[in-house]
Simulated assay, not measured.
Amino acid sequence: MTAPPCVVAALTAADAGEALTVQYAAYLAEARRYGTTEIPPLRESVAELAADLGRPDIRAFGAWAGERLVGSVRLRGGGLGTGSGCLELARYSVAPDAQGHGIGRALMERAHAELAPGDVSWLVTGARSDENLRLYRRAGYEETGHLVDSAGVDLLRLERLAR
């Protein structure tokens, strides 16, 4: 089965409900992997996501296959596009039935396009999330640390220098 072509564009607060649905679906797979539904992306509300999308220090992007939102990502942090910024790639989500068709890569490329040479983007992912780690490493991310989140999940912090 081939996925329809996707269009990546900015997310707005009006997209919050649909974006949260995709986020929940994507992170439920992670919750099963780690045996907890208490991971932070599953605790975010529509109001919190909408507020996030309205902040001036956040750029958010969604991937649409036709009328359906199938993925999203947010860049958070000051100094965006200045060459001296340190930005978090957050709530990176692709609907489970849409994974494996380049949507995640397209979202990441769009987020990276916001960065100036010298900006550092960072993210965290589960230490046992092998598919995610492969994608991030192919995109140039390198492990820089280890932490445990509020749900007790072992995470890796990865960073990438924009060139």
Results as ranks from 00 to 15, higher is better:
residue 120 V to D: 02
residue 81 G to V: 06
residue 71 G to P: 02
residue 94 V to Q: 05
residue 156 L to R: 11
residue 151 A to I: 05
residue 7 V to N: 14
residue 46 V to S: 00
residue 39 I to V: 09
residue 135 L to W: 01
residue 40 P to Q: 05
residue 53 L to G: 06
residue 125 T to G: 03
residue 84 S to R: 15
residue 158 L to M: 09
residue 146 H to W: 13
residue 46 V to C: 02
residue 66 G to V: 08
residue 139 A to S: 06
residue 103 I to K: 06
residue 1 M to K: 12
residue 93 S to A: 14
residue 48 E to Y: 01
residue 125 T to D: 02
residue 49 L to V: 01
residue 161 L to R: 15
residue 31 A to N: 05
residue 80 L to V: 03
residue 65 A to M: 11
residue 16 A to Y: 00
residue 114 E to Y: 05
residue 161 L to A: 11
residue 63 A to H: 01
residue 159 E to P: 02
residue 90 A to S: 15
residue 115 L to R: 09
residue 22 V to Y: 00
residue 48 E to L: 10
residue 151 A to D: 09
residue 31 A to M: 07
residue 162 A to S: 14
residue 29 A to C: 06
residue 58 I to W: 02
residue 161 L to K: 14
residue 149 D to N: 15
residue 65 A to N: 06
residue 82 T to N: 15
residue 87 L to S: 03
residue 11 L to K: 06
residue 122 W to C: 07
residue 141 Y to C: 10
residue 116 A to N: 11
residue 13 A to P: 09
residue 125 T to S: 11
residue 155 L to S: 01
residue 51 A to N: 06
residue 148 V to W: 00
residue 84 S to V: 14
residue 17 G to Y: 01
residue 27 Y to D: 03
residue 110 R to Q: 15
residue 148 V to K: 07
residue 85 G to T: 05
residue 36 T to R: 03
residue 79 G to S: 13
residue 45 S to Y: 00
residue 157 R to T: 05
residue 41 P to K: 09
residue 101 H to Y: 11
residue 141 Y to M: 05
residue 53 L to D: 02
residue 66 G to K: 08
residue 75 L to R: 04
residue 150 S to R: 14
residue 90 A to M: 10
residue 74 R to N: 09
residue 94 V to Y: 01
residue 71 G to R: 04
residue 54 G to Q: 09
residue 82 T to E: 14
residue 104 G to A: 08
residue 120 V to M: 09
residue 77 G to M: 10
residue 46 V to W: 00
residue 88 E to M: 07
residue 154 D to H: 13
residue 86 C to V: 09
residue 111 A to G: 12
residue 51 A to S: 12
residue 80 L to H: 04
residue 119 D to W: 07
residue 118 G to H: 06
residue 128 R to D: 14
residue 65 A to R: 13
residue 102 G to E: 05
residue 149 D to M: 05
residue 138 R to L: 11
residue 54 G to D: 06
residue 80 L to W: 00
residue 25 A to Q: 03
residue 102 G to I: 05
